[in-house]
Amino acid sequence: MADRISPLQGLLIKGRYGKHADMDIASELVISHRMCTSLVQVNAWPDTDGKVRATLQRSTELKLVGGSKSPANKDYTILPVGPGRYLIEAEIDDLELQLRKRIVSDQGAVIGLSHARIVITLSGAKATWVLSKGIAVDFSPGDFPLCSCVATSHHDIGLTIRRTDDDRFDIFVFTSLARSFWQWLEKAAGEVGYEIE
C-alpha cells in the first residue's frame, strides 16, 4: 500500500522558529499536524435528523447535545458544522464504510473526506493570540469553551476549528489550501516564537 503524503510534509520540520528560536526560553506556542485516519461528513434531512443523530451517537458512543458543542472520546470526535451536518473524525480507517452500512441513502448522505482536510494543532499560551490574527471569531475561553467548534474561514480558506483543551485548538484545513494557510500561520506565529513537534 502506497504511503499517504500530506501537503505539509517536508514543511513542518521539528524545531524552534521565529522569535526566541535560538534562545533557551520555553515556547508559548507548539504546532503539530496530522492527516485523518478517517474523516467523514454525514448530512441528514429535517425528518431524518433525529434518526441520524441516534445512529451517530450509537456508533461513536458520544452524546450530541446540540448547538456548537462537539463531543469527543478516545476514538471519535463529532463536529457539528451546520444544520443537519456532522463532521466525524475517527481513529478507525473504515468509518465511511461502517456509516454507509448504517445510514441508508434516503435517511442521510455519507461523504468521505479523509483526504480533503489535514489538521493543524496549536497549543500553548499564545495559541489564542495567533489564531485571532487571522480569524474573526472570539476564541476567548468565555465565548469558546472546551469542546466548542466553529466552521469559519481565513480569507477564502475554509476552516473548522475545535477547542480540544485549555490552550489547545485543532484546525481542519482544506488539503489544497494547506500550504497557503501554513504560509500565513508561520508568519503570524513567528512574532511570538513557536516550536514544531
Binding site: 461528513q41 448530512n43 434531512w45 434516503d106 442521510g108 448522505a109 461523504i111 468521505g112 473526506l113 479523509s114 483526504h115 480533503a116 482536510r117 482544506f174 488539503t175 489544497s176 489550501l177
Partner: peptide, 13 residues
C-alpha cells in the same frame, strides 16, 4: 428536495 451537496474537490486527486 432531499439532496445533499458537499464539495469533494480536495478529496480526490
Amino acid at each position: 428536495l432531499k439532496v445533499s451537496l458537499v464539495s469533494i474537490t480536495d478529496e480526490w486527486a
